[in-house]
Design a protein around this nucleic acid. Structure first.
Lengths: 169, 169
DNA sequence: GTGATATACTCAAGGACATTGAATATCAAG
DNA sequence: CTTGATATTCAATGTCCTTGAGTATATCAC
């Protein structure tokens, strides 16, 4: 799995369609990104998990307290699963749980100052890793890549939301 | 988390460097790709997990039996973790474990015919999802994207191998 | 005002997989 | 034969995923 283009460098007898190549590359990047990021997050200075991290990221971007149900939807986690994730984040004082001012069924979650600081440190460490990984790309390539990544991301959001809709049906 | 470019569409007071944007986009794509793929793999017709899938993919690409230690390295899983993953794959008759012909410490793993078939079906289903996600890209964009993805992947492999080397140090 | 229904979140059970450290079996070198 | 190294598995613990159920609360219809 060390080369994304391995099979294509062999004979051209079987022409590869580019979408398959992209599928494979995204698959490998997703897996590698996940394993690499797990290693980084497991360092002594951080000690959080991927689901915890993405939950914090969402809360930070939201800028204000969130409903558990919105947080679950946005991070594509089930409500049951998210309850435990937020439990562990609260134990680490990275989030606080509060009540909705009017609707007592709803639990609100907000990132703490400590949580914001942790996210900031993690992103700095990530930036360093990413710079190592992407250092060979030209500025033009970076701009094009970014533009296409946005479109890919939009497409993926549509697909996953459709999949979740189908599951609720 | 529904727009990869959300913050950039706000005021230009704080200029974003493209590497940060790429970092964020890759982070989001990784997370979404993982959640989306988990849903697909959990369908009744497949019923395997991400670690199981990537382990099978590697075995299929290897084309022959692999040592457990090589398989662990290539898939970035610990040997202890891989033992359980291979246990469960064997229970589902997707892999077989055999002995090394000379070195009895080594356990060899090979994908079965049934495993190859499952991988094939999953990739077909993935292709359909990816086509939905990427359908809006032009052929030129696809070619450029693929080219850059390969470079990104190579860079990430270097980073993760460096990280694992540091851990062994 | 009451009962029915829906919503929001949590709990419980079970399974998968991640970690660390130890155990066991085997191989190679001297 | 001994010693050190290697390969894999085991055990304990923690995290997170699922499904289904439980509890509290809000809304709706009459």
């Amino acid at each position: 799995m060390t080369s994304a283009h391995h099979e294509s460098s062999t004979g051209r007898a079987t022409e590869r369609i580019p979408l398959e190549e992209i599928e494979r590359a995204i698959m490998q990047i997703s897996w590698l990104a996940q394993r690499q990021f797990m290693q980084l997050l497991d360092e002594d200075r951080f000690r959080i998990t991927l689901p915890q991290f993405y939950t914090l990221i969402y809360l930070q971007q939201a800028g204000e307290e969130c409903k558990m149900s919105d947080l679950a939807d946005a991070t594509h986690q089930s409500a049951a699963s998210l309850t435990g994730v937020v439990d562990r984040l609260a134990e680490k004082h990275l989030v606080d749980r509060t009540r909705h001012e009017r609707d007592r069924r709803q639990v609100m979650v907000v990132i703490t100052t400590r949580g914001v600081e942790l996210i900031s440190e993690i992103r700095q460490a990530r930036r360093e890793q990413m710079q190592m990984a992407l250092g060979q790309l030209s500025e033009q390539e970076i701009d094009i890549f970014l533009h296409i990544l946005d479109q890919v991301l939009s497409g993926m959001v549509r697909v996953i939301e459709r999949g979740e809709g189908r599951r609720l049906a």
